[in-house]
Amino acid sequence: MRLGYFTMPLHPLHRNPTETLQEDREAIILADKLGFHDAFVGEHLTDQAENVTNSLLFLATLIPVTTRIKLASGTSNLSHSHPTLLAAHAAMFDHLAKGRFIFGISPGALASDAEALGILDQDRNRLFAEAIDVILAIWEKNAPYDIDLPDNRFKVTTAGTCAFEIGRGIMPKPYQRPYPEIVGTVVAPFSKGVVAMGRRDFHPMSANFLLAHWLRSHWDNYAEGKRSVGVEPDVADWRIARTIFVADDDATARSYGKRDANSPYRYYYKQMLTKMKMSNRHVIFKKHRDEDDSAVTLDRLVDELVIAGTVDEVVDQILALRETAGDFGEIVYAGMDMVDKTLANRSMELMATQVMPRVNAAIGGR
């Protein structure tokens, strides 16, 4: 099982964005030193708490200060830009990173982003599907492209202005051929989008704020999609993100990870609960679809969704998660606001150097 890193990020509103952006960079630099496989960074345009507005721009600052870790948009919101822009920018990033790039994609779920862009009344899932088809077509075709796909609003050509002798009208192709690994974050239980991912060989990452009993539905749908095109699914392709805090002692794990009023984990799930209720997507926090809203409390979310404890306790909880969800290829550690940098960095260190070796030893032993 690989170890990855994911940050939305999500910071208290009073914090200085200059400081939090640097902290988010430092966390990924540390992840690189500790041997994390990849680092996904989210993006939003209109969220003061989640203040990375362009994941590729943020990640570009990490190329020269990291050596091994793959840098992943987590995600690029495809409804926000013309696919020609996204195809060109992602291809350039892949060259800058010399292949240390994963293209994480999503429609863009934040309603205030859509309102600011003037697309609130549009079907962002359809925009997403049309955009990725055009991005892949750009990467697969040669100039002048002449992309005019059925029922797709985006038409791309440079036929009228191409000048091959001087390179005009030609867009870059990615460093990785035919293109980088493509990963989609999955939030909804029984998501049909995961079936489509399987058909197209995109790889799913199950969100860290989804209750564990819903996770197996993601694998079942992904496997259905793979088998529908005659390919056997590989568990190495499936990532599960989880909210994890590892401490040297039980008291610190309980307070910083769950119970203290200043816990970044409590803040995170207070924000997420509020946001999901506002968008009527809080079914992800329920034990069954018809469960009463009153059962979804902050304390329950923290207890259910935060894996916190000493090294041995976290190992046991990850192995229990694997029993519930089934086998998967990567556990993705969710980054929080650094209320206490020492504890935050120590948790990542323990996760990489002690928890994961024991998890993999236990899996191998089974």
Rank of each mutant, 00 (worst) to 15 (best):
L3V: 03
L3A: 02
G4M: 00
L10H: 03
T18F: 13
Q22M: 11
R25L: 10
L30C: 06
D38S: 15
L62K: 01
I63D: 10
L78T: 02
L78I: 03
L85G: 12
A91H: 07
G99W: 00
R100M: 14
A109M: 13
S112D: 13
A116T: 12
I119R: 05
N125S: 13
A143E: 03
D146A: 02
I147C: 02
D148Y: 06
F154T: 02
F154H: 08
K155C: 09
K155H: 15
A159P: 12
Y179M: 06
P180I: 05
G184T: 03
A188K: 08
A196V: 04
G198V: 00
G198A: 01
D201Y: 06
D201I: 00
N208Y: 12
L211K: 06
S217C: 00
W219S: 03
S228C: 12
S228T: 07
P233K: 15
A251W: 10
R254I: 14
P264T: 11
Y269D: 05
K270I: 02
Q271Y: 15
M278K: 15
N280S: 14
I284F: 01
R289Y: 13
S294R: 12
T310S: 13
T310A: 11
I318M: 06
L319A: 11
E323H: 06
E330V: 04
M336A: 10
D337M: 03
K341F: 06
V359M: 03
G364D: 13
